[in-house]
Amino acid sequence: MTPLLQVETIAKFYGSRIGCADVSFDLYPGEVMGIVGESGSGKSTLLNCLAGHLTPDRGAVRFDTRAQGLRDTITMSEPERRMLGRTDWAFVHQHARDGLRMNVSAGGNVGERLMAVNARHYGDIRNEAIDWLGRVEITEDRIDDRPTAFSGGMQQRLQIARNLVTGPRLVFMDEPTGGLDVSVQARLLDLLRGLVREMNLSAIIVTHDLAVVRLLADRLMVMKDGHVIETGLTDQVLDDPQHAYTQLLVSSVLQV
């Protein structure tokens, strides 16, 4: 089977400071990969390199495109990469305001990606927006409200709807539950798990919350100082960590 994403020895430096280095892995369709590690370990840097937001200094990121199979997204033209960014890829930011247009209604936010790929029937766009708002548990009567009138949890659910409306084949998420109250996190996590299963989503999720990966990720990568130090099936890594740092990470969570 062709991997959906093939990452080969990616490295990104900020001057002489290491962002991430020597990261390689394959992601297969329908798979959810979790990336964990302490603050500053390079999780966001890696994710942004994979999603085309940052240009890595070394390595290749090959995506199984619809038309031409595996293509290196780093060397492809910017228009092609941006096209992927609003069709086959989705990016869920930690802070909803980074991923939403705060001066546009909820319906407009969800509809934007549809209009970006030339949807030109208002009624259809609106119906699709209503459908997707429903799927993230936002009632239809909020469709014309701006995200500024929404709670943090609602904003995050709106961001997810806005991203998933075009049926992306790969979803990048950077701390999707970060910064939310614990009870709100649980509900969002539940919703995400439902969507991942229902849509058979392929995703890469960055988090430092092990509960998030336990629930969502099939596989896990543990990062430290820009490098991947352990990788494996989620349950295996969490229940029987091999690397001393992973053992520490797992145990410190258990103490919480």
């Binding site: 609003r86 209604s105 319906g107 407009g108 990606r113 208002y122």
Partner: peptide
């Protein structure tokens, strides 16, 4: 990339 222009018209209608 002109999808945003239609977002403005969408907002108008809504």
């Amino acid at each position: 990339e002109y999808g945003l222009m239609h977002v403005k018209l969408y907002e108008d209608i809504s």
